[in-house]
Design a protein around this nucleic acid. Structure first.
Lengths: 358, 358
DNA sequence: TTGTAGGCGTTATCAA
DNA sequence: TTGATAACGCCTACAA
């Protein structure tokens, strides 16, 4: 199993493709064509080439092939941090799909807009075939992204704010999110809903949510304007807002829709303090499908962002844009999916689906 | 800002380094030397080269440079999944340090030993300068890793089992972990400890833990052999074992050390069910410093693996091994650090340190 | 369809 | 120390 290519320049033609060609008794050009799939026939020649390649454990030198063809088989991914649930979930869908297409992922993190912008330029300079960017919350990278996008290096932004119409954007359908959440609540006999949305300035979905909030489907359940708040996606905020709303013992909502799982945990904590049981008295639904939501006690129903669809669309777009021909920037939102758990329905005790830390 | 290099082969010398050389009135060789730092002098020539490079926004073509020098400035990282807390935390430390040294991270995931082994070979074929592998739990990749390790492509295994003495291994010091945990417990007046360790077959640290368990420092606190269990690192297991131990109302421990945060959450849930308060009646300490532990209610004191040290050591080793000269495989364990939270000390209400999902 | 030959941009080698 | 020149291994016009 220790078959290592010789590296000393003693024998003249120790360049790999040459050896394969010699062994298969064809030219290097033919080898290149066969192995790259540009020659479709499956005749004796093809067989011989494959055989020789296998026998020699041949793998094309990627540097040489990149240099010549200007394709690195590499995709840059810029994320705020791998610890971030959204980023890691997306990455976990993206990487296998990319690998399936023979692309490697060059991962880079930047915790500020400035750092991310540096990552973007650095990866482009390195020659990635395409770039997928998940901006840090609050930051608007769309200007930078629009500038950096070229025919040669297409860039796709996933989630986050986008004020430039020149960028390719993929994200979550805010209106659909709200619809899913409300439908789920009403299906479980929720009748009056408290809504803790993300910070207006912090999330591109806010507009959609606000717009939808005024639609017929929802207004019937949002009885009290004070039950709708916007703010940070933190436990603290969820706790504070919930306590404030529920201190009125006369008139209380019986369901809470949260803009994040953290908010939901804050809400849950507040209700526990008030001795209000979940889901019996109040149903709670979070957003993001974090491990936290799955492992919490009670486990929290959550909207799962469409990671798979987003990853797939990102790869598709990049492939498309590289195809040459100018395409208009695209802007696509996918709906999330409800992950049912205890906080809206039946109880469970001590079940797990977490990976173990070592 | 839209300075793009020309790509059409109309003008003869449109090769970048050539242009820089021309502008700086030196040879391409000199440009290469100056920019790669192989020429140290800071004289007029160096100045001219840098100036020209800046002016032309020159960035060396990495494919060409890799092809010629056999250095890709790329490190492969193989992890079970980016969702895994351990992997993502390590990655978040590793990436910035690597970038600081001009190395990019080629991330690859494999959820089984077999997949990981394919990732390893694929990344080596791609020419990474070094490889960092976090094996999937339970798997023993050390044979594969030992085989794949070469002078040209050094490999470092982080955490996980390692039965081969030929691999470079970096991980967590199990004995130190135990010591830290016990010390923390006794500092907070814990006197009788229950210990739920990881599965013996599942964790390289088990031996160390078992060994340490017999040392004088600890035996005084592990009163009852039934209070020490080994098993899965899941919520369910923590719940079950805790319930079993605490069903004896006569004789109960007043502290629990857990081999993972999940186990700790299971324990917490069990105690809540039994109306035993944490930390007043029982202290709990987890392992892994997951977000879960930080955000749980009550928040859970946890041992934080030495991510920074492990990342740094991995990079150091890779640099070292590439240096030529044969080095012996190294085996290094770093101690974790106690992250104090409510489950062993003072209470808190609704504080957060989680990132928001979008 | 196959082979020949030239060049992708850089760095290593060697001579000045 | 610098410069000229030859690879690095592959891909792709172009010719056969």
């Amino acid at each position: 199993m220790k078959t290592r290519a010789r590296r000393r320049r003693t024998e003249s033609p120790n360049n790999s493709i040459t050896e394969v060609a010699a062994l298969a008794k064809v030219s290097t050009a033919t080898v290149s064509r066969v192995l790259s799939g540009r020659r479709k026939k499956n005749d004796d020649i093809a067989r011989r080439v494959h055989e020789a390649a296998d026998q020699l454990h041949y793998r094309a030198n990627s540097a040489a092939s990149s240099l010549r063809s200007d394709v690195t088989n590499t995709l840059g991914v810029v994320i705020p941090s791998p610890i971030d649930t959204f980023s890691s979930q997306l990455l976990s869908k993206l990487e296998p799909k990319a690998r399936g297409k023979g692309k490697y992922i060059l991962a880079s993190m930047g915790e500020t807009a400035d750092e991310q912008s540096k990552c973007i330029n650095s990866l482009i300079a390195r020659g990635v075939d395409g770039l997928i960017v998940i901006p840090v919350p609050e930051a608007d990278l769309s200007g930078i992204i629009a500038d950096a996008t070229t025919e040669k290096t297409p860039i796709v932004q996933i989630s986050g704010r986008s004020t430039s119409s020149k960028t390719n954007w993929i994200g979550i359908d805010g209106a659909a999110s709200m619809r899913e959440a409300v439908t789920h609540i009403t299906d479980h006999n929720g009748t009056s809903i408290m809504f803790m949305g993300p910070n207006m300035d912090a999330d591109e979905a806010a507009d959609a949510l606000v717009a939808f909030q005024n639609s017929d489907q929802i207004t019937g359940y949002l009885h009290n304007p004070e039950w709708t708040t916007f703010g940070d996606c933190t436990i603290q905020r969820g706790y504070d807002d919930t306590l404030r709303v529920f201190e009125n013992t006369e008139n209380r909502p019986n369901a809470i829709i949260c803009g994040s799982d953290d908010i939901a945990i804050g809400a849950l904590t507040a209700l526990q303090k008030l001795d209000i049981t979940v889901p019996d008295e109040v149903k709670i639904i979070g957003f993001g499908d974090s491990q936290l939501a799955a492992s919490y006690h009670p486990s929290i129903t959550s909207l799962r962002p469409p990671y798979g669809s987003m990853a797939e669309e990102a790869l598709r777009l990049i492939e498309l844009k590289r195809g040459g021909k100018r395409h208009l920037p695209s802007h696509t939102a996918f709906p999330p999916q409800v992950v049912r758990r205890e906080s809206t329905s039946s109880p469970r005790i001590g079940t797990s689906d977490m990976a173990d830390p070592r």
